[in-house]
Design a protein around this nucleic acid. Structure first.
Length: 582
RNA sequence: CGGGGUGUAGCGCAGCUUGGUAGCGCACCUGCUUUGGGAGCAGGGGGCCGCAGGUUCAAAUCCUGUCACCCCGACCA
């Protein structure tokens, strides 16, 4: 394949687009790879589309290799299947909903669990048909509140999604493992750094879920890792629970005046003034955070979270625990006189308490632990309030923020926090969708059994952005060979006809050998412009035919390392092929 | 969802305070010169000044609304 710059549909920009913040977005726009077409939607230009298809090809090859079969659904889907699983409403405002001319409801698919489940139900009915894994590479639509960072978070994007169908849990484990291995191969081939982290498992009851995160400072997900190899999404981190303490010998609770202590800092200062020998810290206090739970059916319920005062509630962790309910700030103190703003204490909380308000505590609140907390009276706090003796709770919740240095739950050392972007997600769905949509097969005894499923996704368009983000340098893009839009960027400089003839014949030889060559054959363009463009566009090998030709040499340069060498014209094709094929 | 900022040619920006012919650089076209690190000179084409209302003899400019984009925040008991 020969791409001639003189006729390629391409215009590079000298200045960064003002709305592009992250490097990948800036460089992809400047290099003429993508063009913004709508809020959260991009047009792929010829070079960009070549990169996109290369990523897609890697994904497709690995999915095929693991035995998954490719299908293709419409993006425009009817309401009914999504109604059956509750997601028509549960998905909320992120779902693009529309009506046809007769007034029937449709949606633009944000993900396709329902459709795959129904497809298998349509065609298969026996355990002998299973296992089967199906996938598609599809345009997905999510009405994001705030599309961001170019291709990283759009409202239209491309995802490879696959679904496994098995008759039993052992089968699901095998399908899950096969996908996991395929994903490792995919991200290795794409040249993307990744960390496999355990994702939410709690709320879905033991089902397994892992995310492939690409570590980057612009990432939207926070994850943790330990020196001993533990890695998890911050939402999935479980707290190391301290030992319970016997009540014997613990002091009695006592109420103290603590005026003007609206924050934990001021409260700790006041406490240490009252009892200088105690050495109180934020972790000695129990703060009781009120939120409003909004259930999917619209009912609202106040909920109090009790947690050590040195930690804030992590909204993402909280919501992950409470899903599908959503959390909103609590404002309605007027309707709940038992809640004394700023001085809420657990004595009035819980199903058994005076207020009857549900009270969940952090796992660190174990029986026998002693706390300074609100006395349910303005200006007063209670000290030495003992959990399990002086107050009780309705349950335990992992809602406190995870802090650097917290112990890893598997004992592998202190945790560090890092940011990442989700590139892939593998998930044991279990029987949720199969049950909702009644996907059953006959087993070997002729009995109907519900199929168990997994769902697995890779962000294809996002991977393009992540690769650009992770490999660029100050001059421009630096594509890994596997996904570069061309193998070689061949630059002809000067105005000498001999240069263009030599470059042309080299280009033809390389193309004949199977390479894709991006040939800068533009006449009357100065060398500086051509070199800058070559660096911006980021082909892995840059070959220059120019002033060296008089001495019978051309220059071969590696975009990533900057290494350059001169080779004799006659040896050039072989030298370039060697560089490209490593 | 809240706060702040910005919308003027393909890209980057000025003009708006004080209403009166829409400008600059890059890119694009023509000619001449130049050709190893984003060339020079001369000439040229390209604008619903985000959109919709309003005020005015007259609106890019003032007012109202709306949409979009960018940034920050999302709870502090």
């Amino acid at each position: 394949m020969l791409l001639r710059m003189s006729s390629l549909f391409l215009r590079t920009l000298r200045d960064d687009p003002a709305d592009a913040e992250v490097p990948s977005h800036r460089l992809l726009a400047r290099g003429g790879y993508i063009r913004r077409a709508a809020p959260g939607g991009f047009t792929w230009l010829p070079l960009g589309w070549r990169v996109f298809r290369n990523v897609e090809r890697v994904v497709r090859e690995e999915m095929d290799a693991m035995g998954a079969q490719e299908v293709h659904f419409p993006a425009l889907l009817p309401r009914e299947p999504y109604e059956a699983t509750g997601r028509w409403t549960e998905y909320g405002p992120n779902l693009f909903r529309l009506k046809d001319r007769r007034g029937n409801d449709f949606l633009l698919g944000p993900t396709h669990e329902e459709m795959f489940t129904l497809l298998v139900k349509d065609l298969y009915g026996s355990y002998k048909d299973l296992p089967v894994s199906l996938y598609q590479i599809q345009t997905k639509y999510r009405d994001e509140a705030r599309p961001r960072a170019g291709l990283f978070r759009g409202r239209e994007f491309t995802m490879k999604d696959s679904y496994s169908f098995d008759v039993d849990d052992a089968g699901l484990d095998a399908s899950y493992a096969a996908h996991r291995a395929a994903y490792i191969r995919i991200f290795d081939r794409l040249g993307l750094d990744y960390v496999i982290v355990s994702a939410m498992s709690g709320a879905m009851g033991g089902s397994k879920s892992e995310e492939f995160l690409h570590p980057t400072s612009i990432g939207e997900d926070t994850f943790v890792r330990s020196p001993g190899g533990y890695a998890a999404n911050v939402e999935a981190v479980s707290t190391v629970v301290p030992e319970s303490i016997p009540f014997d010998g613990l002091p009695e609770a006592h109420v103290e005046d603590t005026p003007d202590t609206p924050t934990i800092e001021t409260l700790v200062a006041a406490a240490n003034e009252l009892f200088p020998e105690a050495g109180y810290t934020g972790a000695s206090t129990l703060k009781n955070v009120v939120v409003t739970l909004v259930h999917p059916d619209g009912t609202r319920e106040p909920l109090v979270i009790g947690l050590p005062g040195d930690r804030d509630v992590d909204t993402k962790r909280l919501e992950a625990q409470l899903a599908p309910a959503e959390v909103e700030p609590f404002t309605d103190f007027a309707a709940h006189p038992d809640l004394v703003k700023g001085y809420i204490g657990p004595q009035v909380l819980g199903a058994e308490g005076k207020s009857g308000i549900r009270f969940l505590v952090d796992p660190r609140v174990v029986p026998g632990s002693r706390w300074i907390t609100g006395a349910n009276e303005p200006g007063k706090h209670v000290f030495d309030l003992v959990a399990g003796r002086d107050f009780n709770w309705d349950g335990v919740i992992e809602a406190a923020e995870v802090l650097p240095g917290d112990p890893a739950p598997d004992g592998s050392g202190p945790l560090e926090l890092a940011r990442g972007v989700e590139m892939g997600h593998i998930f044991q769905l279990g029987r949720k969708y199969a049950e909702a949509l009644d996907l059953k097969v006959l087993d070997e005894n002729g009995k109907l059994v519900t199929v168990t499923m997994g769902s697995y996704g890779v962000g294809v368009s996002r991977a393009v952005a992540a690769i650009a983000e992770s490999t660029h340098d100050e001059l421009g893009l630096v594509w890994p060979r596997e996904i570069a839009p061309a193998d070689v960027h061949l630059v002809a400089t000067g105005k000498d006809a001999a240069v263009f003839e030599a470059a042309q014949s080299l280009a033809e030889e390389l193309v004949a050998a199977g390479l894709t060559v991006l040939y800068d054959d533009r006449p009357k363009v100065s060398p500086g412009v051509k070199f800058k463009d070559a660096e911006l566009l980021g082909m892995p090998t840059i070959v220059t035919v120019g002033r060296g030709l008089a001495e019978g040499v051309i220059e071969v340069r590696d975009r990533a390392t900057g290494e350059r060498s001169e080779v004799a014209v006659a040896d050039a094709p072989a030298a370039v092929l060697a560089a490209v094929r490593g």
